[in-house]
Design a protein around this nucleic acid. Sequence first.
DNA 1: GTTTAATCGAGACGGTACGTCGAGTCTTACG
DNA 2: CGTAAGACTCGACGTACCGTCTCGATTAAAC
Lengths: 197, 197, 197, 197
Amino acid sequence: MEELEKKAGGRPRSDQAHQAILQATMEVLKRDGYRAMTIEAIAACAGVGKKTIYRWWSSKAEVALETLTTYVEMHVPFQDTGSLEGDLLTHLKLALPGLAGPSGALLRGLVAESLLNEDFAHEFQRLFIIPRRAELVVLLKRGIQRGELPSEVDPEVLADQVYGAKWYRFLLYPAPLDDNYAHTLVNHILLLSKQDQ
Amino acid sequence: MEELEKKAGGRPRSDQAHQAILQATMEVLKRDGYRAMTIEAIAACAGVGKKTIYRWWSSKAEVALETLTTYVEMHVPFQDTGSLEGDLLTHLKLALPGLAGPSGALLRGLVAESLLNEDFAHEFQRLFIIPRRAELVVLLKRGIQRGELPSEVDPEVLADQVYGAKWYRFLLYPAPLDDNYAHTLVNHILLLSKQDQ
Amino acid sequence: MEELEKKAGGRPRSDQAHQAILQATMEVLKRDGYRAMTIEAIAACAGVGKKTIYRWWSSKAEVALETLTTYVEMHVPFQDTGSLEGDLLTHLKLALPGLAGPSGALLRGLVAESLLNEDFAHEFQRLFIIPRRAELVVLLKRGIQRGELPSEVDPEVLADQVYGAKWYRFLLYPAPLDDNYAHTLVNHILLLSKQDQ
Amino acid sequence: MEELEKKAGGRPRSDQAHQAILQATMEVLKRDGYRAMTIEAIAACAGVGKKTIYRWWSSKAEVALETLTTYVEMHVPFQDTGSLEGDLLTHLKLALPGLAGPSGALLRGLVAESLLNEDFAHEFQRLFIIPRRAELVVLLKRGIQRGELPSEVDPEVLADQVYGAKWYRFLLYPAPLDDNYAHTLVNHILLLSKQDQ
DNA sequence: GTTTAATCGAGACGGTACGTCGAGTCTTACG
DNA sequence: CGTAAGACTCGACGTACCGTCTCGATTAAAC
């Protein structure tokens, strides 16, 4: 039931090479940073011809995108803990630590790429930004239904405020993104419904 | 009393060349986009030697940064309209339109650059991100003092939520950034104080 | 009847700068070699503006040519010792040592320049090559008149053979140019008249 | 038995590019002269990337040297005609005409280069100057053995006188280098043995 | 004594070519 | 036929000097 529409004979795609490339991407990234990372370096590090990379991806951004989704595969799930506060805190506390370290660097590089290349931006949004945001919106709507948020709030805009705050500090504003921050942020969201205390 | 530590002679910097470079930067940006914009193209378009650019700036990002601050010089002031709602709405409605068009493209390029180059990131934050954010914080603190916001909100985090939402849509999430959006966003902020309705 | 059509006042040429430039040329030559020697380096080393050099010379080759004639001023005279053998040996033994050391390097550079630039070649020939060769021809003609050489030899071609041998080794063929060589060369010339031994 | 130390695969060197570069070198030389000839112009004229030139040669002088040896490959052989006079005349009459025209310009440029760059000088001597001089020495020694020259002449110094005269006129002294000159020069050499006429 | 004009050091200017780098494409031989 | 190796064309990089052009500051002869 898988996609086995390969025509006929010929050597099949080498999974070994595939894995070596993704792994080499991470290594070169850690060694040189995203900007200095080149297809040539990845190929050399993976012991692979450049053509083998270009056959399966169209740019270093595409390789990096797959590396991100493969290597991180988002250890950051959305869960239903029973309360909006729990849902948000759990999610954010899992999400923030990963932003330091290599996967954060990778993410910053991919955002940069999406800002410089509209085609890649669509890809990046489709595979990364939009799905995760959609889950956050679901979580917030659940909070509204539970009565934890006033019904007049717009969950779309509220999602922007939550993720926006996180991304703003991650991408632009040099200030810490720690558990303390997560608590304050969630408190601000919950304050919206503290009308009749 | 000023810094007049210039040693002696030498031909003074040509303001004509200086202006021509900033202008050419905008033209090439519009023509080719930020990524494809090169120092060589800027030099050619300005009728200037490459050395003249490298003498005063260290990269295309630095030129672009000065072009942004010079050419836009922020038609987007912060004003005290007497109410938090007025302050926020006025500011946002002025800020959002500029994000479409060439200055938006320039801004996206500069953010990308700051994500790829830590040194430039500091420069960009120092000259652009931090000062503007500081003004927003002042505006929010004024709202707290006036009693338009509950005293337990953290103006720093609230600023992240406002600017974060704006930047998130501008940089990452493909959804409109219009006056309607500004109203909803401001409403969410003001909802924080609707406790005794 | 001379060209003293200078209009009027104005600061006169600084002899101090003039000398400093010639001296700096020798220093830079020794430090960097002829090829790497630049007008900019000479100006910097002499503590002089580039314009001051370009005002009086048109290229580094012209400066070097004047430096050569000034600093060497030909310690290599032609003398009438009474015999062809004495004339030739005296001249060659004086000429050869100078070809090692900085003045040799300068000379090589000037020859290179004259090979690359036809205009400079004329200048170089006029001021250096032709006058010295003419003196050698005089010396050889004197030898013919004295009967030290057979009357059928062409002094022009014979001069080429003497100076040619010297220049050939100096410019092209890596072999010593010492007193021993001078003796053998002179012997070959004198052999032409050993017909009736 | 041969030098087959090539490791393994990889696209082989393009002979088409190789030939195009040598040919373009001659064209640009004719068009612009040696000094104004640049690697960029050669690359453009050959329809080749600059990298391809720098991959195989280290400077325009190296390209020019190979162009000289390839394109001229010396239509100027040394032959044993049975007499010293014949040998010398034949050789010189073949050698002199090539010194006018483009190959002469190339040769002048290469000499200039060798005067400005010691490393290249060694290369130039090894591949061009020394082998040809060696053949001339062989020719002269043959003359001595045949008794056409007195046994006390030094063939090394005599070679300098022959080639020196030629190079002197070619490089330094602006006078014709024609068949007439060849005859006079050879006569001077032969005069050495006219002792018992 | 002022004026006048050419000089001086300094260094920015518009250019050209340098030699390097990486992108993305192509040609081999091997398995 | 997919692959590793690596040569190919292309074009921007940032540097170095070129020869020219301001500057403000000398400097002497001419007025």
